[in-house]
Simulated scan of single mutants.
Amino acid sequence: MRVASIGIVVGIIGIIVLGIFNSSFAAEPHELSVDTRQRLVLAPAQRYMMLAEMRQMLGSVNGILQGLATGDLPVAEKAARATGMTGSVDVNPHIKARLPQQFLEWAMRTHRGFDMLADRIHAGSSQTDIIRELATLTGNCVACHAIYRLDEAR
């Protein structure tokens, strides 16, 4: 009787252990995901500056959309201007030296595009034209993020 009780307890523990191992293996992908984007390796402070600039761009997109949604074009213009050339850290010589020419050209074109968008908002362009241009600018962001990734030098 005692051997049977020990056998039952060992069996239960075995089932629990197998359940834990099986659930952890099931949660992990069977194939490793490989990020094939081009690595841009920056010093920690440089990477932080670039990521801060990207967050600023996203904030500008949100500000533009909020301004358009509420009919407050000065808010939309100010948000677009914040991501124009004056908001660019890509011209920092320490960062610029570590970035590929294509990336820099794309970034400058995007910053200039935000300045042009701010000018068009100020000039009274239609909401449809503003949104169309914003879609083009965010298309640059999507394409860039599909090609590049920022890594931190270690």
Rank of each mutant, 00 (worst) to 15 (best):
M1G: 00
M1C: 00
M1W: 15
M1K: 11
V3C: 04
V3M: 10
V3S: 05
V3K: 11
A4C: 11
S5E: 01
I6G: 12
G7S: 09
G7P: 01
I8F: 03
I15P: 03
I16D: 01
V17W: 02
V17E: 10
G19E: 02
G19A: 08
I20W: 15
F21V: 08
N22A: 15
S23M: 11
S23K: 09
S23V: 10
F25R: 07
F25M: 12
A26Y: 01
E28G: 02
E28N: 11
E28M: 00
E28C: 03
P29C: 03
H30V: 12
L32Y: 03
V34C: 11
T36K: 05
R37S: 13
Q38S: 12
L40A: 13
L40G: 13
V41C: 04
A43V: 12
A43C: 02
A43M: 09
A45D: 08
A45F: 09
Q46K: 09
R47S: 09
M49D: 13
M49W: 08
M49R: 07
M50K: 01
M50C: 14
A52W: 00
E53H: 01
M54D: 13
M54K: 09
R55S: 10
Q56Y: 00
Q56V: 04
Q56H: 06
G59Q: 10
N62Q: 15
G67I: 02
A69R: 04
T70E: 01
D72V: 15
A76L: 12
A76Q: 05
E77W: 15
E77L: 12
A79G: 07
A79S: 14
A80M: 15
T83Q: 03
M85W: 03
M85R: 15
G87H: 14
G87P: 09
G87R: 15
S88G: 02
V89W: 10
V89N: 14
H94F: 13
I95D: 05
R98V: 03
P100V: 08
Q102Y: 01
Q102N: 08
L104A: 07
W106V: 04
W106Y: 06
M108Y: 00
R109I: 13
T110G: 02
T110L: 12
T110Q: 06
R112T: 15
G113A: 02
D115Q: 09
M116F: 10
M116R: 12
A118Q: 09
A118L: 07
I121Y: 00
H122G: 10
H122L: 14
A123D: 14
G124L: 04
Q127H: 08
Q127N: 05
Q127L: 11
T128R: 14
I131G: 01
R132P: 00
L134I: 06
T136A: 04
T136V: 14
L137H: 06
L137K: 07
L137Y: 07
G139S: 04
G139V: 14
N140G: 05
V142F: 11
V142N: 08
A143R: 15
C144D: 14
A146Y: 01
R149E: 02
R149F: 11
D151N: 02
D151E: 10
E152M: 06
R154Y: 11
